[in-house]
Amino acid sequence: MESATSASLLVRLRDVGNEDAWDDFYRLYSPLILSFACRRGCTPDDAADVLQETMVRLLRTFPGFSYEPALGSFRSFLLKVVDARIKDAFRRKAARERLSQRVEGGAIPLTEEPDEKPDPGAEWDRLWDTNLLRRALEQVKNRVQPTTFESFQLYVVEGVAISEVQARTGLPPNVIYQHRNRVMKLLRKHVEALKSELGE
């Protein structure tokens, strides 16, 4: 569960000693960073290194910063940080291969960098939005009865026909609709709260 505070996550991260804030950030964004790194061609081990280096970069950046939306979104900034760490991961991979082959001299080629995907932003945005929805859905799941969430999951997320949802859950259609409305209302609230935490 996220720490209860009205301060935005970006502000709380200015204090590197704020364990709750950094833990919240890690739980919220590590799946996104790992998924993005893997989709850009990293192995799971290299993706874990990208995540670590990103966290370290942010630990350097946040103390004393002030957020200026006019300079760009945090989403864009984080993409640049992660993308630079992915390039570093490919450099380490090239260095490992060079070392294992005992090849001497010359600069390390960056032949395996994912330059065949010139617009990482589109993929980043898609994964960012998915990650945010996933996180909000997890939060809502913890706020409603299991049967409420189950009927919502079946009817809305999986697109199961209402008659089938009724057969599986034993709930009448009007209750299924009520569950849908309640969860959607909560979901919107949590999505907005998560966006607000990151100044979006």
Partner: peptide
């Protein structure tokens, strides 16, 4: 929002949420 929920491939992001406990 319902459309986005149906289109989202949650497996892409949720499947990776386990391994980094050591970093945490």
């Amino acid at each position: 929002l319902e459309d986005a929920l149906r289109e989202a491939t949650f497996a892409e992001t949720s499947a990776m949420s386990g391994p980094p406990d050591s970093l945490r």
